[in-house]
Amino acid sequence: MSALILKVDSVRLAFEDRKILQDVHITCRQGEVIGLLGRNGCGKSSLLRIIYGTLNASYKYVSIDDLFIHKGYHKNRIAYLPQHSYLPDSLKIKNLAKMLVDENFWDEFIDLTIYKVNCHKTTGQLSGGELRQLEMLMIIHSKADFILLDEPFTHISPIQADEFKPVIRACAKRKGIIITDHQYYNILEVSDKVILLKDGVTKHITNNDELVTYGYLSGK
């Protein structure tokens, strides 16, 4: 069976007279990790929310295998990890996992050490780093064909980040992933392709030196 393809094109977004997004094009295949980089406030999170369907754009074209997708979350086609915690703090992790994790990946999920250690706790009993890891793991083990990760490395330690990267790569064998984080070095390490969002326009990076050329990284 051929890999599904998520296409995002012609996204336009403006707040009052300020243009945030104006010429956006991203293609993500199942089996691929797309890294999305850009300065704070450039519209990365807004773009992910538009793809997911929780933010309205002036115009957008989002499709999976050329079938237009109005709301990415409809029928669990696309899953989204926001920057903020999305889990209620009164429920046990094991109960939340049963609601969010795809049964096809259940055995794989419950074999993860962080789940084994914390499954009987509630979200309110976890540290910020533990909660962030479990939120990420539930999202990438969900039924969705495509995963959007917004600042997944925030609030976790470098050691935890290094442990999580192979999980992202393993997940990408069966899903398409678009990931953004201000810790650009983590994005460069885990991604197959990198896209820079600058002045509302997507720049498809073929060489990391272009990140210096476009002014995202210092050349020093």
Rank of each mutant, 00 (worst) to 15 (best):
L55I: 10
R77Q: 05
S218K: 05
D150C: 13
D66P: 08
K165I: 10
P166Y: 01
L131C: 14
V62D: 05
V24E: 04
Q160E: 15
L126P: 01
H120Y: 06
M1S: 15
S157K: 10
V101P: 04
A170K: 07
K165N: 09
I187C: 13
T123E: 03
S10F: 03
D65H: 06
F68T: 11
R77Y: 00
K193V: 04
K143N: 11
N186S: 14
L91H: 07
D199N: 15
L148N: 07
C42K: 09
D209V: 09
D23E: 14
A172D: 06
E16C: 11
Y184Q: 11
H155A: 08
I20W: 04
L112S: 04
R169C: 11
E135C: 07
Y216W: 09
Q160L: 14
F105S: 12
T122S: 13
D17Y: 12
E16G: 07
A97M: 10
L126S: 01
K7Q: 15
T180G: 04
K71A: 09
F164K: 04
H182Y: 12
H182T: 15
T213C: 02
L13K: 15
P82L: 01
D102H: 00
T202P: 02
K92Y: 00
L197W: 13
H141S: 07
L91I: 13
Y61W: 12
E210W: 04
D89Q: 05
Y214I: 02
K94S: 12
I26K: 14
Y59I: 01
C28R: 05
S142A: 06
S127Y: 15
A79L: 02
N95E: 02
V11H: 02
K143C: 01
A97I: 05
A57D: 02
Q22W: 02
H120S: 12
L126K: 04
